[in-house]
Every structure is written in structure tokens, then in C-alpha cells.
Amino acid sequence: MLRSAGFEVQLYASAEAFLQETVAPKPDVVLTDIQMLGMSGLDLQSILKTRAPALPLMFMTAFPEDALRKRALDAGAICFLSKPFKATELLYWIEKALSA
């Protein structure tokens, strides 16, 4: 869906794989899940705050707990989307992140 909207998309098998990538260009925005195998999205956010503090980070989750939402947003996330969400909602937040 994002490619059909004109975005260049790079997928990673894990947060660790994303952090180890040295060849790909720097992303304009990161969309990550909260719960993943290995490192969580919140752990990734913590590392990215140090490595790339201006990089917009967006969360999505099937487990929209208020405490997780608050923690992610308080730490600077652009948004916290609860699955399922509409494509228009995702596109709105991506455009907002890119224009910030």
C-alpha cells in the first residue's frame, strides 16, 4: 500500500536487522510494531533517540495498552496506531512525519 502511494519502503526482519543495516540510505520515517521477536519497538525507540534523535518514529500495535501508548508518545513517537487501522490514517501520519 505504501509503495502504491509513492513511498520507497524498506522492510526488515527485526529491529536488530534494521539497526545493523549499513548499506541502505537513512530512512525519513520508521514505522515499527511494539511487540516483535527480540527487541521491542520501545527498545528500538530508545536506541534511535540516541543514534538519530530527529528521525520520526511511528508505532503500530494489536495490543493498544494505555501505558505503552503514553510511554511511546512521551518519548517522542509521532503516533501510536492500533491495529487494525485505515490506510488513510497511516498515510496521514506518514505525511505529518515527513513534513515535520
Rank of each mutant, 00 (worst) to 15 (best):
M1Q: 12
L2C: 12
L2N: 04
L2D: 00
R3E: 14
R3H: 05
R3W: 00
R3V: 06
R3P: 07
A5S: 15
G6K: 10
F7A: 02
F7L: 12
E8Q: 08
E8S: 04
V9R: 14
V9E: 05
Q10I: 11
Q10H: 06
Q10W: 05
L11H: 13
L11Q: 07
L11I: 02
Y12W: 09
A13Q: 12
A15L: 00
A15K: 06
A15S: 03
A15G: 11
F18I: 05
L19N: 01
Q20C: 08
E21H: 03
E21V: 04
T22E: 10
V23Y: 03
V23H: 01
A24P: 02
P25Y: 00
K26P: 01
K26R: 14
D28T: 04
V29W: 01
V29E: 00
V30R: 00
L31H: 09
L31E: 03
T32A: 03
T32C: 03
D33T: 01
I34L: 15
I34N: 09
Q35T: 07
Q35L: 13
Q35S: 12
L37N: 06
L37S: 11
L37Y: 02
G38M: 09
S40D: 07
S40Q: 10
D43Q: 15
L44A: 03
Q45W: 02
Q45C: 07
Q45R: 05
S46M: 14
L48C: 01
K49F: 02
T50H: 06
R51K: 15
R51I: 07
A52W: 05
A52C: 10
A52L: 14
P53G: 06
P53T: 05
P53C: 08
A54L: 13
L55W: 04
L55I: 05
L55T: 03
L57D: 00
M58Y: 07
A62D: 10
A62F: 10
P64W: 02
P64R: 08
P64I: 03
E65S: 13
D66H: 13
A67H: 15
A67T: 13
L68K: 09
L68V: 14
R71D: 09
A72L: 10
A72N: 08
L73S: 14
L73C: 07
D74L: 06
A75L: 10
G76M: 11
I78P: 00
F80T: 06
F80P: 11
F80Y: 15
P84I: 06
F85N: 09
F85K: 10
K86Y: 12
K86Q: 15
K86E: 15
K86A: 14
K86M: 11
T88P: 05
T88H: 13
L91N: 06
Y92N: 14
Y92V: 04
I94N: 01
E95G: 11
E95N: 13
K96I: 02
K96G: 01
A97M: 12
L98G: 01
L98C: 06
S99W: 08
S99F: 07
S99M: 09
A100K: 11
